[in-house]
């Protein structure tokens, strides 16, 4: 288990990132709403729902194959938007989940989305389905569902592994328009190869801010950009330090040794005392 005192530099750095994000959230809550650039994958959501509505076929949503975590909660945020739009046009939806915890929460979220649109009668409890908690049994079930129901649009958002390509290729074979987004960098290439629109990397977390334009979410998004700038600064600084000093074998520079000091809080204090 990791602790802050394993590496004090990381703990301070995390603190700095949190402060940057919080400052931007507070500024945004006070009315300074930032601009968010166009994200094609998220613009395609309405297009995909529209197509499913025209064809009178269902929309399929999968919030990854892991359990309840930040990633699946973010996927549920996007699926709430999808469900509300689908509810307006009475387009049927199917949501398949691979985790029992997520299943109960998904049911609640989808039911709330129909109620929020004033159409609770359209909610079908069987539209949210727990298929299996085993990876390939789930993949087989989803592939079967796509084939049987001939879904018109698919949304794969969340944590995916080897089954990602099975979903995307089967959906492609029935001609479904596909929007995918995952935080798993190993699966992003598969989605790019097989899907129509892909949300890459942190665009996945930008989704709720982009769709809702809600101040907290948009402020947080800008805070993340500032945090990235800080991260970039330290990457460049680290590269320069490493190049100049050849750290771990180079000349003795106390300040740099303090920066890279191993050990807990005591080691940090010792290094600072050593500096003066």
């Amino acid at each position: 288990m990791q602790h802050a005192c394993d590496n004090w530099f990381v703990a301070f750095f995390e603190g700095a990132l949190i402060i940057l994000i919080m400052v931007r959230i507070i500024k945004s809550m006070r009315g300074s709403i930032p601009f968010i650039r166009r994200i094609p994958g998220l613009n395609a959501i309405d297009e995909a729902i529209g197509r499913a509505t025209e064809m009178g076929k269902p929309i399929l949503m999968i919030p990854g194959i892991l359990g309840l975590d930040i990633v699946s909660l973010q996927a549920l945020n996007v699926f709430t938007h999808v469900t509300r739009t689908a509810a307006r046009f009475a387009t049927p939806i199917r949501m398949c989940v691979c985790d029992a915890t997520l299943y109960t929460i998904s049911q609640e979220v989808i039911q709330d989305a129909y109620q929020a649109e004033g159409k609770p009668e359209l909610y079908d409890p069987d539209s949210v389905r727990f298929l299996s908690d085993q990876q390939f049994a789930f993949a087989a079930s989803v592939a079967g569902l796509i084939q049987r129901e001939q879904v018109a649009a698919t949304f794969f958002l969340g944590s995916f592994f080897a089954e990602s390509l099975i979903f995307a290729e089967v959906a492609n074979s029935v001609g479904a328009i596909q929007v995918a987004g995952t935080v798993m960098t190993t699966q992003t290439p598969f989605f790019i190869a097989a899907c129509d629109y892909v949300i890459i990397g942190d665009e996945f977390y930008a989704a709720s801010a982009y769709l809702s334009k809600e101040p907290v979410a948009t402020g947080s998004l800008v805070g993340q950009d500032y945090a990235k700038l800080l991260l970039t600064f330290f990457i460049v600084l680290g590269s320069i330090i490493y190049t100049v000093t050849g750290y771990a074998g180079g000349p003795h520079v106390p300040l740099i040794h303090t920066l890279f000091a191993d050990g807990g809080w005591n080691a940090l204090l010792h290094s600072i005392r050593h500096l003066f």
């Binding site: 995390e14 990132l17 930040i70 549920l76 709330d112 935080v183 930008a206 809702s212 907290v216 947080s220």
Partner: peptide
């Protein structure tokens, strides 16, 4: 992705997250 997760975790923890 890590920063996005950190920001969302922070919003949920502090109870300022909106949405589903």
């Amino acid at each position: 992705v890590g920063l996005g997760g950190l920001a969302m975790g922070l919003r949920i923890w502090l109870g300022i997250e909106k949405g589903a």
